[in-house]
């Protein structure tokens, strides 16, 4: 037996701390670009406000941006790693599967910091322009959840109500970004060609729909459209995760008078949002853990050969 004194492996907390630092460092470039864009957008909003335009309201649940950033974030987190090859990350003395999850967690920490920064920035912008910060505001409600055809809606049918967003909706950007990030991370560490999947799956659904329409097979066409509707606008669909359904409930209609107005088919429901969030993040975590098995520390596939 060897007389060498064996070296310990690093503590997982140290690896996580270091990965947070590494991911943050690697994101400096995109962060500068995002900051410049944010500054430009804010300058335009302030300029509009100064020249008589409306203030910028602070309604975190209305922005899909954190969710979109959450979907794209894993690309930035994993861009320097050969996920399925031999990269520096895998040479280090940490269990490969655990290390992949540590890196995902580190990316999440950076994502949350990014979302927080964005929210604080938007809050500042709302304060500067005197916008509404999660306060009451009047919204037009449609009498039924079905959006009427353009130009047929009687303005008298609209009901104006005071809507006071629940304070818990401040959490929406964080949960939206988290859910999207977890799902996208699962794809990033679970498949060799994530872009092919990201494009291929929607294309396949579209193809099914087109084939259904062309061949006049209603079942096929309906299957595709209902699947999309269920995943996107369903009670617990992606929109519920990303904006507490603020996106799908809010729509523009053309009144009988010819005027286009923004109306709500209903108001965001905290319970639905909470369930959708739990479902999506829970499912995302399950898929992430399953996907991480693609990165497991290699195991010997068969028994040793006898001499």
């Amino acid at each position: 037996m060897s007389h060498a004194t064996l070296h310990p492996t690093p503590r997982i907390a140290d690896a996580l701390r270091e990965q947070v630092r590494t991911v943050a460092l690697s994101l400096r470039g995109p962060a500068v670009v995002a900051l410049v864009l944010l500054a430009l957008g804010s300058a335009l909003a302030i300029a509009e406000f100064v020249t008589g335009g409306g203030p910028v309201d602070f309604a975190p649940e209305l922005s899909m941006l954190p969710g979109i950033v959450g979907f794209l974030f894993p690309i930035a987190v994993w861009k320097s790693e050969r996920r399925f090859g031999i990269s520096f990350l895998w040479l280090l003395p940490v269990d490969r599967r655990r290390h992949a999850l540590v890196k995902v967690a580190a990316g999440w920490v950076c994502l949350m910091a990014t979302v927080l920064f964005f929210l604080v920035w938007m809050l500042g912008l709302a304060l500067v322009t005197g916008g509404n910060i999660l306060g009451d505001h009047a919204v037009r409600l449609l009498p039924s959840a079905i959006v009427p055809q353009s130009g047929t809606l009687d303005p008298a049918a609209l009901r104006t109500v005071l809507y006071a967003p629940e304070p818990v909706l401040w959490l929406v950007p964080f949960t939206a970004a988290t859910g999207a990030y977890v799902l996208a991370s699962a794809v990033a560490i679970g498949v060799r060609h994530p872009l092919r999947w990201a494009i291929g799956v929607p294309l396949s659904v579209m193809l099914v729909s087109v084939i259904g329409a062309a061949a006049n097979i209603d079942a096929l066409r309906l299957l595709a459209s209902r699947l999309v509707e269920f995943i996107h606008e369903g009670r617990y669909g992606l929109d519920a995760l990303l904006t507490a359904r603020a996106e799908s409930l809010n729509t523009a209609v053309i009144l009988a008078t010819g005027k286009t107005v923004s109306v709500w088919r209903g108001l965001p429901d905290i319970g639905e949002w909470a369930v959708a969030t739990l479902l999506w993040i829970g499912a995302g975590l399950v898929v992430l853990v399953a996907a991480s098995s693609r990165q497991r520390e290699r195991r010997r596939p068969r028994a040793p050969v006898s001499p």
Binding site: L91, R298, R299
Partner: peptide, 23 residues
């Protein structure tokens, strides 16, 4: 343990490389 072996074992200081890659 950067790649899986198709057969046999590798030991480093008595540790099976396939089972104790990080160590």
């Amino acid at each position: 343990n950067l790649e899986p072996a198709s057969g046999g074992t590798a030991r480093v200081f008595g540790l099976d490389a396939a089972q104790h890659g990080p160590e």
